[in-house]
């Protein structure tokens, strides 16, 4: 497997489609992890999604096969079907001439649902911007921290150290949770 460049040969010549999808997927993953800006994270998410779509579509490719719509000679309403008195199941050899419809179906719905969920994500980040005036994650965390400290002060005006200590832990947890859901 590892003798003189066989693996590179395999990756770049025979399985180039998988290499492209892996690269795109990593770009998206990196953007989602490392970028501070929420919109850039969303762009990363879209690139990631595109990589998955590319993966499915490239798996659906079949040599010497046409798109999964019946040719005139197999058309259930065509002249050939009428001559035989109704549509017939395709033989094994005929099945081999059509590409698999399943990946196309899955990606067709995935694209539209992806647009809808991207719209939802944009709406959430728009609302965050209206509320905090920023969509940079580090600035957001600072502002959230400050706001939590303010509410804590309002709830416990007397400096009662053990009570504040016990209150701090669940608050810190909540901050990390909201940070996660923003990604």
């Amino acid at each position: 497997m590892f003798e003189d460049g066989a693996i590179l040969n395999e990756l770049f010549l025979e399985r180039l489609n998988y290499l492209i999808y892996v690269v795109l997927l990593l770009i998206g993953l990196y953007a989602m992890i490392a970028k501070n800006n929420l919109i850039k994270k969303l762009i990363g998410m879209s690139v990631f999604q595109t990589a998955i779509i590319l993966f499915y579509v490239s798996i659906g490719v079949k040599e010497d096969a046409t798109i999964p719509i019946y040719l005139p000679e197999h058309d259930p309403h065509g002249e050939h079907a009428h001559a035989r008195g109704g549509p017939e199941a395709l033989s094994r050899g005929q099945v081999a001439t059509y590409a698999n419809p399943l990946p196309h179906v899955l990606m067709l719905t995935a694209i539209v649902v992806g647009v809808a969920t991207l719209g939802l994500a944009l709406a959430v980040s728009l609302r965050i911007y209206q509320g905090y005036g920023t969509i940079e994650e580090d600035e957001l965390l600072v502002k959230l921290e400050r706001e939590d400290a303010r509410t804590r002060k309002a709830e416990f005006p007397v400096a009662d150290s053990p009570k504040v200590e016990s209150k701090r832990k669940p608050v810190a947890k909540r901050v990390s949770k909201t940070g996660k859901s923003k990604k």
Binding site: P76, E88, L90, P101
Partner: peptide, 12 residues
């Protein structure tokens, strides 16, 4: 799916 769609549903 490829072989039986025409028989089952008559959808091209």
């Amino acid at each position: 799916f490829i072989g039986k769609t025409g028989v089952d549903t008559e959808v091209p």
